[in-house]
Amino acid sequence: MTGFSVSLIVSNLSNVASYLSPIFETIPSKVVPAQIEKVVSLVSRTGRDLQRYDNAGYRQVVGCVPYRYKKRQGNGTESKEIELLLISAQKGKGMLFPKGGWEIDESMEEAALRETIEEAGVTGELEERLGKWQYKSKRQSVIHEGYMFALRVDQEYERWPEAETRQRRWVGLDEAREVCQNWWMREALEVFVNLKCKAEEVEIEANDV
């Protein structure tokens, strides 16, 4: 997958318009096409009525590893360093990557982007799917099947649906490995790192030709 983009517009519901208008003032008009096939609301979905399960009864969840490049200056040279965005758990003190339920009225990619906007208040270009993991919920005796994508962030909103219940923080790779509380998300992070390292090697080889 080379990239997946989604356009967002606000519904005309009066009870959310005042909350969302400051966010959409920051979005360039060219982002919104003349015809909108699907509307993604910036109000968090709640409930499990549309939750997707597989044939074995595993709850399907989708998330992202949001990242950006930060330029570093040193010794007369310029380099770029990856930063990762982590969010606080709603319960407990841990940090994790944004993720949530994949619902039956959306594609996997749409679910990944929606959950990342709802929980972390960022969006961007959806890149590689990093893999699939099975894990058991700590609060429920339910097995989840989790999918993770890489997301290169190009929009970061000051206000987002879960801003009052979550904190977000850009961190370096070493800190992300240390503070991410979910083992399967740490594995997804290592897959992400390996993919980006290979991409960097290809870029270096191409520049040397």
Rank of each mutant, 00 (worst) to 15 (best):
V6R: 15
Y19C: 00
S29P: 00
K136G: 01
R168D: 03
F4D: 13
K138A: 09
L50G: 09
D49R: 04
A120M: 04
Y53A: 01
L86S: 06
E109Q: 10
E200W: 02
A176N: 08
S107Q: 06
Y157N: 03
V142Q: 15
E203F: 03
T26M: 05
L20R: 03
K71S: 13
E78F: 02
I82T: 12
Y135T: 14
V10A: 14
T165K: 10
W184V: 02
D208H: 07
F97N: 13
G92D: 13
Q73I: 08
M185I: 04
A89G: 04
C64L: 11
G76R: 07
I82K: 12
Y53G: 01
L130A: 05
C180E: 11
G101A: 10
T77P: 04
V31L: 11
K80N: 07
V209W: 10
Q155G: 04
S18V: 03
K198S: 12
T46I: 05
M148C: 07
K99C: 03
A89N: 14
G121P: 01
V43I: 15
Q167C: 02
K91T: 11
E156D: 04
L130G: 10
N55F: 04
F192H: 14
N15E: 15
R114I: 02
I87H: 07
K91W: 10
R169G: 00
R45P: 00
L151I: 11
L96C: 09
G131Y: 07
E25A: 04
R166E: 04
W160R: 01
L195M: 11
D174Y: 03
Y69C: 05
A56S: 15
F4A: 11
L195I: 09
Q181K: 03
L96Y: 09
S141W: 09
G92L: 07
R52S: 09
E25K: 14
G94S: 12
L42A: 13
P98Y: 01
A206S: 11
S141P: 02
L130S: 10
T46K: 11
N182Y: 14
W133R: 11
R139A: 10
R114A: 09
I27H: 06
G76A: 06
S88Q: 13
E37D: 15
W133S: 05
R166K: 06
G146W: 05
L96Q: 14
N12C: 00
V61L: 13
E103Q: 07
S14W: 06
I143R: 12
S137N: 14
E190M: 05
G101P: 03
G172Q: 09
L96H: 14
L42S: 09
V209T: 10
F192W: 15
I87F: 03
C197I: 14
V43F: 07
S44K: 15
E109R: 02
Y53K: 15
E200Y: 00
R59D: 12
L50Y: 14
G131I: 02
K71T: 15
T77D: 12
R72T: 11
K71A: 08
I23N: 05
E119Y: 00
L151W: 13
C180A: 12
E37W: 05
F24S: 07
A206F: 14
R168Y: 03
R59G: 12
V32I: 15
P22F: 06
E125M: 05
S41L: 12
M108W: 04
R152Y: 01
